[in-house]
Design a protein around this nucleic acid. Sequence first.
DNA 1: CTGAAAGCGCTTACAG
DNA 2: CTGAAAGCGCTTACAG
Lengths: 331, 331
Amino acid sequence: MARTTSADVARASGVSRTTVSYVLNGRRDASISEVTRERVVETARRLGYAPSAAARALRTGRSDLVLCVLPDWPIGPVVDALLEDLTEELAARGMALLAHHGRDRRPLADLWRAVDVRAVVGLTAFAPEDEAAMRRAGIQVLTTAAAEGGGRAPFAGDQVRAGRLQAEHLAGTGRRALGYAYPADRRVVAFADQRLAGVRAACAELDLPAPVVREVALETTSAAAAVRGWRSAGDAVTGVAAYNDEVALAVLAGVREEGLRVPDDVAVVGVDDVPLARLAAPPLTTVAQSVDRQVAHLVAQLVAGIDDGDADHGPSAAPSDLLELVVRESA
Amino acid sequence: MARTTSADVARASGVSRTTVSYVLNGRRDASISEVTRERVVETARRLGYAPSAAARALRTGRSDLVLCVLPDWPIGPVVDALLEDLTEELAARGMALLAHHGRDRRPLADLWRAVDVRAVVGLTAFAPEDEAAMRRAGIQVLTTAAAEGGGRAPFAGDQVRAGRLQAEHLAGTGRRALGYAYPADRRVVAFADQRLAGVRAACAELDLPAPVVREVALETTSAAAAVRGWRSAGDAVTGVAAYNDEVALAVLAGVREEGLRVPDDVAVVGVDDVPLARLAAPPLTTVAQSVDRQVAHLVAQLVAGIDDGDADHGPSAAPSDLLELVVRESA
DNA sequence: CTGAAAGCGCTTACAG
DNA sequence: CTGAAAGCGCTTACAG
């Protein structure tokens, strides 16, 4: 059984394909009689007619598909929320969003065999040749990735400031010798380095010694080893800034393992405020990132870029109140 | 600057579009001289030629795009791994995978305006009219969702058995009055109900009283209230099966809050074995699901369905060794 | 070994 | 108010 085409609908309703197209695309200029309109709509419904996206794209020269290329690091609730919101916003503009989950370094070129896209939203940086090729093909490219070495992370606000907030809080509660719990997951180094830079900068400004960096895997033994290292440093570390809440939870376990107490012996601060942070023993002090506001900001930026067709929208300044220290009991 | 077409490549290399098409699609039957072939390939590269997916799809009548419709519940590492593997497998077959993240109940029909797809993989059940429409349009539909009321979850192995394993372990360590910590997140009820059914079944078989079900949100106060409820039940509950590790961690916090000890006063078992499970205080006993094997099984099933074009592949039996109890200190 | 031509299903000036 | 016709860029019998 062949696919239903607009010609089928035209024949069945006794009009030309032109009229079918006008009716179904709601063009107001060509005034079609109400009777005809209804007949066409009804026929299309009855026949289960779905226009060919390929034919439309070929004819109009533009696609209604926006592709979102996901980053290499594990995607969490922030990206999830972003995708949902972006899907919604684009749908309101007649566009559809689909996400590419390939972790492979395979060039995007392979994808273009399967789909034509109107715009590509990168939550990660593109290979320069990929980006050039896309622009040459007339695809609009929006990247939220920071320039190499820039102070801004792909999104999620100002990572450097997150580290700064951690160190300032630790210093504010009287800790002078700080440790930094660096993540073992290599996919995440770009974030980690920026947060660590923030801790370093704060230490320098506050006349504290530079933080003692130790890698902490998500296991008690790894964390315990790090804790021993910190305690036996020249100045015994009394405050630890962790890359994120998961790492902070590992540090908590390591401190327990070593028979020390939090925050009396060692204070610990995380980043993210995951749901589990408040359930930790003791409840974790952390830097929360406002997902809602971040996402709203990003979506607005992307939609603006797509609306005016300007491919050169760099990331504009994020609202400055995206980060917030949540003080609980661990520091 | 207009887009580069196969006609441009043909002109620049002094051959016909036929030859360009043959060369670029690697058709062996039409024997093209090696010299010509190389010239065409080189010219295409130099011009940055990318065939129009729309034109190809229109002409061949088939698309190389496979769409994966994601479920309503929060996507975690399992789905992530699945998407990666599936992307890889399909790429090897010249197809591309893209994911749809819309949580909306908006009909899929809107999506067909933007893309033609070869197959749709549903990690969630489709509305009957959506599914019918897709099949009518010649789209292959593969669903991993269990039939309503069926014993198998969308994927991720046998959820009923996970609950069974929890209850059996608790009973095996001498607990007779069991509690069930039901999740507050409504998106996850399908899973929760199956796991709970497993706990119920095991209790019945072992001649234990039915489990006392309490909802537990991811907050200490909510969990503490549940713990009080369990302790004051007719038979004071001494073992709790939690929906998953996150909920189990909340129960741990609630037990602490009430001044009780785990596992001496109350034993707790989770499901999932998330990285944080081993970092809990005390380390969490849980039912691990082998992500790798699950994913491999699912991917094989889906790829088989796409390869032979048979849309009627029901979920075949999963390997039985997907679930494994990991005994740590909480039970 | 290579080219001219048809046709996939749509949209849209243009003519009536 | 509605229709006939062109053309988007490709692939593929078919002819040479």
